[in-house]
Design a protein around this nucleic acid. Structure first.
Lengths: 135, 135
DNA sequence: ATTTTTGCAAACAGTTTGCATATCT
DNA sequence: AGATATGCAAACTGTTTGCAAAAAT
């Protein structure tokens, strides 16, 4: 999904295109890593110097609700956000550097679906996080 | 692990046995579900009427550090605590009732270990949560 | 012109801390 | 007695909200 598609989504949900929103949107569009609110705020401020923290929170929430970005609460980390990918994926957190890597495993996914079924549930979503040391 | 063993652990780490600590300890010993700080506070207050919330937090933190209880931050839930079991387990969260059930799966565990290895990490711990609707 | 969005400051929830007093060993 | 733990209130962090002014449609 690219930048213009994002904007179409925003227009679709009756939302005005403003400099603050464009700035934050484009940060996520370019981001190579998971971002904290403060990082987003700092980066966006370069484009929109008088941006307020409240607007940052509001915009991030908006993008979450619109399904454009995703929120993560990893253990011992501040809340982080990333652009949502179609494929749902899991995370590996390097416990020293706090760096986050992503992966998917059909094998694990299948096993999880199975377990949920066995226990009498319909799986809606799951969260899998591996806390590791780099070898 | 039973109540007396808990107390031995506390003594072992040079910690005084006080009514507040006994009360909170025994709540976890009996608890059949995951507990929020407020629930712990309310329950413990029955035994120790002038208990303060600060002591509740301090004691809960103490028990976490001692490895007696475990902290969970499930999505859209308040922070919850449970007595730590030797076996590490995963959680199924019923998205309507917010009830939490536990399970273990060697199959999943194995697959997870494998993945971590493949990606060049040593697995220290993992967190797996299934968000579901009850069938 | 109308509606939505913004920045600011104040409010808020959950948690932690400083301190003088009380409790444990 | 000496060391630790407690309750209280104040501080603090991360986040949300009310409002009047500003900007988008």
């Amino acid at each position: 999904m690219d930048f213009d598609e994002f904007i179409e989504i925003l227009k679709g949900i009756n939302i005005k295109i403003t400099p603050a929103r464009l700035a934050i949107l484009s940060i996520f569009d370019k981001a190579e890593k998971h971002l904290s609110i403060d990082e987003i705020y700092m980066m966006a401020k370069k484009d929109v110097p008088n941006l307020g923290i409240a607007t940052t929170y509001r915009t991030v929430k908006l993008l979450c609700d619109a399904g454009i970005i995703e929120k993560h609460n990893f253990e011992d980390c501040e809340t982080l956000y990333e652009k949502k990918t179609v494929k749902n994926h899991s995370h590996i957190i390097d416990m020293e550097s706090k760096e986050v890597e992503e992966f998917t495993s059909e094998k694990i996914k299948k096993a999880i679906l199975e377990i949920a079924q066995d226990l009498g549930y319909d799986l809606v979503n799951y969260r899998l996080e591996l806390y590791c040391h780099k070898k």
